[in-house]
């Protein structure tokens, strides 16, 4: 009985110890076989990485985080990893810490450093160490998104303030003005198009006339050739010379007349300018004429004077002797 009891106690103890040891190692992710290699990496900060988190290469779990320690000078964090022996890491290997899921579990992934050209990797402190970088946590991303949303809300408020009822009315008025301008431009374009059509017709007619003239000139040249070809060419040339001389004389006469007309136009122009000045002064009330035109009292005075003058003339006609005395001796 005692031996059986001893055996039972022994079995329970062994079973419990095996369960504790094997269960802990299994859940921790420890391997019971195979060589292990230690790798260390340096980070500025490590997020929520902790001992036991998986280490992955190209998505495959090859080890786990062994230890996390802050550097003695406080400038960074050194993380030790235990990975399967014999695995060849990339030439420019770097360790990137990132959340494995949305629920707070993190992982360490070994990548070529060139895959993250903009990441701020911590420089290794010792030979054999790898550079490390921790991706932002979900909470950090959420905080950034929160700041962005705050900025958007502020921007929206500002737009709301700027886009008041008065601004809306101004914009509506502006749109109305633009529509009016557009209509006017449209009318102008329509008119210009009509004018352009007319001009085009004129040009077409002018072109037609030029063409006709060219034909006539050609006919004339043809006739001239015929004339030159005939014997009376000398007489015709003489006549043409005489005609040209007459035309020159006529032209010179017309030129003199033109000069005379220009001089006369200049004088007329200066006369009109003087008249314009007089009219301008009269309109502004300067001078006697201006005052006469602008001042009604003066006009009334003039009218009174004229009336008295008419009375005087009438009296002179009727009684000339009162004013004129003619004596010969």
């Amino acid at each position: 009985m005692s031996e059986k009891r001893d055996a039972l106690v022994g079995v329970v103890i062994i079973a419990a110890l095996v369960v504790i040891a094997a269960g802990t190692l299994w859940l921790e992710g420890s391997s019971f076989s195979g060589e292990r290699t230690e790798v260390a990496a340096v980070f500025h900060e490590v997020g929520q990485i902790k001992s036991g988190n998986p280490v992955k290469l190209r998505g495959v779990r090859i080890g786990r985080v062994q230890e996390v320690e802050v550097l003695a000078d406080g400038s960074g964090v050194r993380v030790h990893f235990r990975i399967q022996d014999g695995i060849r890491l990339p030439e420019d290997a770097a360790v990137v810490l990132s959340p494995e899921s949305f629920f707070g579990d993190w992982q360490a992934e070994i990548h070529p450093r060139t895959r993250f050209p903009h990441a701020d990797f911590a420089d290794p402190r010792e030979a054999g160490e790898l550079p490390g970088y921790a991706l932002p946590d979900i909470s950090q991303l959420t905080a950034t998104a929160d700041r962005i949303s705050e900025n958007l809300a502020e921007l929206t408020d500002r737009v709301g303030i700027a886009f008041s009822d008065e601004t809306a009315r101004n914009i509506a008025s502006l749109i109305g003005n633009v529509e009016e301008v557009t209509e006017r431009l449209s009318d102008l374009v329509t008119q210009q198009a009509a004018s352009f059509t007319d001009v085009t017709d004129d040009v077409r007619r002018a072109t037609q006339g030029i063409g006709d003239a060219a034909l006539e000139a050609q006919v004339a040249l043809t006739r001239m050739n015929q004339l030159f070809a005939q014997a009376a060419t000398g007489d015709a040339l003489d006549d043409l010379v005489a005609l040209a001389a007459n035309l020159r004389i006529l032209s010179e006469g017309l030129q003199d007349t033109n000069v005379t007309v220009q001089s006369m136009a200049s004088r007329v122009d200066s006369a009109f300018t003087a008249l314009d000045r007089v009219v301008e002064r009269a309109e502004s009330g300067e001078g006697s004429l201006g005052r006469l035109l602008a001042d009604p009292t003066m006009a009334a005075g003039m009218e009174g004077t004229l009336a008295e003058l008419q009375v005087l003339l009438q009296d002179i006609r009727e009684n000339p002797r009162r004013y004129l005395r003619l004596s010969i001796f």
């Binding site: 504790i20 269960g23 802990t24 859940l27 921790e28 992710g29 902790k50 001992s51 036991g52 629920f103 707070g104 579990d105």
Partner: peptide, 15 residues
């Protein structure tokens, strides 16, 4: 899931 947040300290704490 069992391994996700497991810490060896969990076993120590239970014992």
């Amino acid at each position: 899931g069992l391994k996700l947040f497991f810490l060896p300290f969990d076993v120590t704490y239970a014992l």
